[in-house]
Design a protein around this nucleic acid. Structure first.
Lengths: 146, 146
DNA sequence: AGACAAAAAGCAACAGTGTTGCAGAAAATG
DNA sequence: CATTTTCTGCAACACTGTTGCTTTTTGTCT
């Protein structure tokens, strides 16, 4: 993804909120902006820090939940017990996440990335098991750290 | 896995602890026993409940950590932000987990299972990324609920 | 622009989860 | 059986996430 100018990001933020019929508020703008500026995924804690101590913890939680409900971001499960969030691709709509891509956690810089081009493989499960969703998390060293 | 008698489990518990040069204590015996009696994975909370209110929370946490360090159990990341633990196969030794199998979470009964026979597939990552570990979690309906 | 209704933010309080330090209890060792 | 080592339980704390309620902000309609 190419680096965007501040104005481009601001437009995109407004557009995203409008498209999802969400009120345009400071916290939503700021949090969306953080996601757009950043290639990787963010945990709740990251957001609180990066937002510059301006928003209440509760507001951040509720904003993230709203974004997940609307399909703007999706969650990434990790081994360290802290949920991370990342922007969804455009195909995601309310209630229907199509995030069938692989997630990557760097063991060096601890950043989490969505590898949008790597699709989750099909798996043959034992008899009796039916699949609804497959989550693949790869740990290793990322492009920037290698 | 076939159901074992109480005595078989007791022997297995003692043997596992000895093999890993761990003191044989009530809490370790009880917690290991829970894992052996149960096909699926257990979260910290499950263990506290099933153990019958006998052990301190801290003891349970420390016991689980010890077992993970020794390679007796391994962790399974889940979307709901609660780490689950499951017994390792025998190949696991201290510091070297070889749990390259798929984990399955049932959306009906919420149980988590290790599908030991389903191996994690190879993935082609974008240039610059190197893989150290792949974690696959499948959500769906399990054998018992189907 | 101003008034109103709806939505969101902020605050306080709480519940759950996991960690650390320390004193006493239990296990391993000889 | 005595000693050393290890483990447990307790208290206190930090972090994470949630809920109810009041105040503020946003969107809407004239």
């Amino acid at each position: 993804m190419l680096k965007q100018t501040a104005i481009q990001i601001e437009n995109q933020v407004g557009e995203l909120l409008k498209r999802n019929s969400l009120s345009i508020t400071d916290s939503r703008k700021k949090i969306l902006q953080l996601f757009l500026e950043q290639a990787g995924a963010l945990a709740h804690g990251d957001i609180e820090k990066k937002a510059g101590e301006k928003f209440d913890r509760v507001t951040v939680y509720r904003t993230l939940q709203t974004f997940v409900d609307k399909g703007i971001i999706h969650t990434i499960p990790t081994a360290d017990n802290s949920i991370r969030y990342a922007l969804c691709k455009d195909e995601c709509s309310e209630g229907h996440h199509h995030d069938h891509h692989v997630h990557f956690v760097c063991n060096k810089c601890s950043n989490t990335y969505c590898l949008d081009d790597v699709v989750t493989p099909d798996l043959k499960l034992p008899k009796g098991y039916s699949t609804e969703h497959i989550e693949v998390v790869v740990e290793g060293i990322c492009k920037n750290c290698n």
